[in-house]
Each structure stands twice: as structure tokens, then as C-alpha cells.
Design a protein around this nucleic acid. Structure first.
Lengths: 332, 332
DNA sequence: CTGAAAGCGCTTACAG
DNA sequence: CTGAAAGCGCTTACAG
């Protein structure tokens, strides 16, 4: 392997001059710079980043821990993070936290091994009891609501308000028996609990009595679970004219399940999701809450980079703005 | 920051014994190991991977260069690569190669800076003229057909055969005027050219005359382009009863476009895609070619890891098996 | 503008 | 079983 010393020897300068050229320091005479660059070219030298990382104390690597990058939301979010990271000169290592809490804590621990300069952690499984673990002396941005008083930057979605708006839209479109489909609401700060809260709030605001049989809990946010949940509900004879799904990806499955059962969207059941991932291409096009995940990604990266650069602001909590996208699936 | 020397000092041993403990070397007395581990615990020490990487000459990082991880195929593929990498003890850095050829070459160049131990490169823009650039003394696995004689492992999809099977299925279902929708066929080894070849082959095998007006070229493999292409074709009065799309993601848009134009699937037009990404959840469910991307991911990672470990096999070219998934969108 | 020296925090033969 | 020394390939003050 060609090193800086080889270049120095051939070019007849010291290693440190080569280093200066590599780092485009102004303190190099033009002729020297040219000579060094020429040698670098000739020997096809490439800087060894492992060495640079060690001496600089930075890796320019950011960890991104999300449940599964194969799901549309995280894929698109990840894509935006990679792009924004690149703009700041960082590369992104993706870790998948398939086992919600366990893997999220592992990611946190890993990142402290100085492999990453910082970590963006989608905390879907962390609850109040994990507060202490977030007290790290390491740049971290959490994707999700602020749990308690963890001294960490948060970027979160407008879960309650978005769900409220979604369900209110269903009500406006004439729905009276609205099903809510989401995960267990055991983690109070989790997406399911918050979106369920928004659902209940919307019912209440409209003077509708919540019916527990209309709350359908799924284990995981995949279309498969959406399909199965609808099959089950219909088999159980649950009657409903509206459906609010925790994510578009789940809604995609739910719409498929409705079709299986001979229920038409929007005629028999109006459906709305959350995330706005490719949902406009479905037939019927799926109404959704757009939490502007581009904004989330950009904000998360920017906050993290600021921490990495040592800016000492108070921990901030950014809730992204949202839009209600009204499409065919909720048409009157 | 706590280093190995701090641990050594406190535990009363030499740094190298700490290192031995960290690397679970058997040559450490149990009592010494216990003492060191206790100190590590107490001082909350974490190994500095940047330092370890430098001295070991490995980063345990694999680069994955794909066009855009927000697209279902690459998201799911990336997910499988991350998972398989993890099993081998590697982490994955994703680079997005939005500008096909340019960024792919950049990724190649970057990976030689010893940041990655190896690179998995989705070569959508590289053609025969780039052959030389692939002659790298660095572990690389290319996702895509073998261009010429580049001495590199390849994992590719059954592009021609898969397309042949897809179009033959349409013909079997009674289609006679079959549209092919894909990108420019300028790169002979590219996905579009190969799948188009399979399309032509299937027509020929069935004795159908190819009609150039039925070949629709799109700029990018997104649903948006699928929608627009259908709108355009219908506005132009192109008549067709079958549609083969280069990917399911494009087909999703095309089906949306057909709905916009009042054309029913499968009654008026039967549609089949390629990739099998969530296509079974669409309404109607989309027929597709399943190129077993799990197998692709696993194979690519395994081949790369073998290279990284210095195994000196001849460059292999693996074409994954495929399945024709017959669903509602091609029902008679 | 250029260089000699020390250091980043580990690991790797080599002795003992 | 344990340690002293050299080295991985850079960068960073500090001199000159």
C-alpha cells in the first residue's frame, strides 16, 4: 500500500508537506504542491481514512438506527438522511433495530465505541424507564417524542395532531364508525399510543362515542398485518365505515384486505393513513397525513452535526409540520 | 476518554494484557481477566474502533452503492444486505448513486481510501467502456451483468429470462398488443436493454410482430414516470392489451395511470412487473417476476466477504433463480 | 514555506 | 501467563 511516506520520499519532501497538500493547507509553495500532486497521481495514492480518523478523532460516520430500511417510510427517510449527511461531509451507517428496545440500546452502546461521530436513533421501543441510558456524553438525536427529561435533541412527528386531523377528516366525510388500527399502546410515548390519543380526541370533539371493538391492535407495521387484521375484523362481524391506519404501509395492506372481503373504498369504507409514502399511486389513491419526512431527516442531521461540532445549545424538540392529503380513499 | 492504558494502570497490568482480554485471547489467567473486566466496567471503557481499525488494517465496513434506498427494491435489498453483513460482523455504509455512472465511479474511488473493506456496487450506469476501472485490487462485487472480462464477482438478475417469462405469461393470458415500459436501452448490459431483449424474444417465440410504438421509454424507474408514460401513450391513441413494466415500482405508477384513463386492469389491460416488492398488496394484486432479492443480497455479501478474507477464487457470476408470480393483474 | 518529533489508541510479533 | 517495544498511517503543534 502506498503511504504518505512513499509520496514524500519520491517527491523529495517530508511526509508532513504531503499531509499539508492533502489537506489543502495554504502554507505550501505552488511548485511544491504541484510536485506532490504529481507524485500522488503517479503512485495512485489514496489517503488511508482509518489513519486519518484516528489522528483526527473523527470518523465522519453517522449511525442511523431504524427498525427496517425495507419499509417505505424508513427507506425514504434513510435516503434523505444519507443525502443530507453527504452535504455535511458525513456518511451513514444503517443499523436495523428489528427487536425494538433491545437493538436500540445496542445501537446506542455501539455508537459509543467511537465508530460514529454521532447517532440518529429511531426510538420506537424506548420508554420512560430508559431515560438514564440516554444521558450519554455523545451526540445523539432521537426520532420520537421526548420521553421525560432526557438531555437529548428530539425530532418528532405530529402524532397526536396528525391523527386528530386524519380522523376529523374521516368524520367530515361522513364516517361515524371509525376503526383505528395500530400497535399496542403500552409505551405511552410511542407512535401507537399517541396516534390513538389523537383518534380519541377527534371522536370526542365530534361528539362520537368511542367503541372499543373498533380499536384493532396489530403486532407490526406491515401490510401483512393490515390484511390479516381486516380479515379478522370482518369475520368477527365488526361494522365500520371509516379506517385510520397507523401508517400508509399498514393501510396498503388494509385496503387489500377490504378488497378481499368485497368492501369498496371509499364507498363502503373510507381509509386514511399516515406517512405519505407512495400512497398517491394506489388505486384508489390513499389519503394520508404527510409529516414531511424530508424536513425530519434534514432537521435530525442538522441537529446532530451541530452537536458533533460542539455547539452547546439546550436540547431542542422539533415537531415537524404536517399536511392532510385528501385523496380518493376518503371521497364522499 | 478512557483508553486501554488507563485500564492497564488501574488494573495494575500492561496495556497488552488489556488488549488480550478485549480480544478474548486464551493466554490470560482467569483472575487477571476478571480484574481487567471489572476495571473496564468501572471506568465504562469502550474500545476505540478507529484505533483498532488502523492497527488491524480492517474497518469491518462494507460500502453499498445503490441508486436510491428509498425505492422499494433497493430498500429491501439494502435491508437484506445489512442483515447478512451483520451476521458476518460487518456494518454497511450506504452511498446513493443518483447520477448513474458518475456516482458509481465515485463510490469505487472512495472505497479505495481504505474506509471500506469491500464494496457492493449496483452498476446501473457502467458499460463496457468502464471495464478498466473495475480492475481494482480491492474486494468488489458488482450487482449486474458481467460487462466484458472484468475480473470481479457478479451477482445478476435473470433479466432476459425473467422478462421472457413475464411477457410469455401475458401472451398466454390472451394479450396480443403488449407494451414494454423501461429505460433507454443504450447500455447493452443494462437492465432495460436486457429486459427488452426478453420481451422481444417472447414476442418472437409466440409469432407476434413487435410494434415499435409499443415500446415506451421512461427516464427513471419511478411511479411518477409510469403514470406519465401511460397518460402520454393513451393520449397518443396507442392501443394495447398487455403491459410489461421494467419494475413493480414503475408498474404501480402505470396501474395508477391506467385507472386515471378509465382503463381497467386486468379487463382492458393486463399488467406484469418485475421485482416483487409489495406488489401482492396492490388492488388488483400485481403479477411479477420474483428475482429472489434475498438470495441476491446474501450471495453478494457472501462473495464479498470471501474476497475480503482473501479467498482467491475465479471471479464468479451468479444469476439468481426467479419465479413468475401470477396474480389478479393478469387474470383472464 | 518546510521539517523533525510526538501522538492518536490500538495490535502484533517477540521475549521472558 | 505477562510485558516492553515497535508499528498501523495519518495529523498536530512547534521550530526553524
Amino acid at each position: 500500500m502506498v503511504t504518505i511516506r512513499d509520496i514524500a520520499k519520491v517527491a523529495g519532501v517530508s511526509p508532513m508537506t504531503v499531509s499539508n497538500v492533502l489537506n489543502s493547507s495554504p502554507h505550501v509553495r505552488d511548485s511544491t504542491r504541484a510536485k506532490v500532486l504529481k507524485t500522488i497521481e503517479e503512485l495512485d495514492y489514496r489517503v488511508n481514512l482509518a489513519a486519518r480518523n484516528l489522528s483526527r478523532g473523527k470518523t465522519h460516520l453517522i449511525g442511523l438506527a431504524v427498525p427496517e430500511v425495507g419499509r417505505p417510510f424508513y427507506g425514504q427517510f434513510g435516503s434523505a438522511v444519507i443525502e443530507r449527511g453527504r452535504q455535511h461531509g458525513f456518511q451513514i451507517v444503517i443499523e436495523q433495530t428489528q427487536r425494538p428496545k433491545e437493538d436500540e440500546l445496542t445501537a446506542l452502546a455501539l455508537s459509543r465505541r467511537r465508530m460514529y461521530d454521532g447517532l440518529i436513533l429511531s426510538a420506537v421501543g424506548l420508554g420512560r424507564s430508559d431515560e438514564d441510558l440516554l444521558r450519554v456524553d455523545f451526540p445523539v438525536v432521537i426520532l420520537g417524542e421526548r420521553v421525560f427529561h432526557d438531555p437529548v435533541d428530539h425530532v418528532s412527528m405530529p402524532n397526536v395532531d396528525g391523527a386528530f386531523a386524519a380522523v376529523t377528516h374521516l368524520i367530515d366525510q361522513g364516517c361515524r364508525r371509525i376503526m383505528a388500527m395500530h400497535g399496542p399502546t403500552t409505551i405511552a410515548s410511542g407512535v401507537s399510543a399517541l396516534r390513538h390519543a389523537g383518534y380519541l380526541k377527534a371522536l370526542e370533539a365530534a361528539g362520537l362515542e368511542p367503541d372499543p371493538s373498533l380499536t384493532v391492535v396489530i403486532e407490526d407495521f406491515t401490510p401483512d398485518h393490515g390484511v390479516a387484521a381486516i380479515h379478522r375484523a370482518v369475520a368477527d362481524g365488526v361494522a365500520f365505515d371509516g379506517l385510520f391506519c397507523v401508517t400508509d404501509y399498514v393501510a396498503m395492506g388494509a385496503m387489500r384486505g377490504l378488497a378481499d372481503c368485497g368492501l369498496r373504498v371509499p364507498d363502503d369504507v373510507k381509509v386514511i393513513g399516515f406517512d405519505n409514502v407512495d400512497s398517491r399511486f394506489l388505486v384508489p389513491s390513499l389519503s394520508s397525513i404527510d409529516p414531511s419526512h424530508e424536513v425530519m431527516a434534514t432537521t435530525a442531521v442538522d441537529l446532530l452535526v451541530a452537536r458533533i461540532n460542539g455547539e452547546e445549545n439546550d436540547p431542542s424538540e422539533v415537531v415537524t409540520p404536517f399536511t392532510v392529503l385528501k385523496r380518493e380513499s376518503t371521497r364522499m
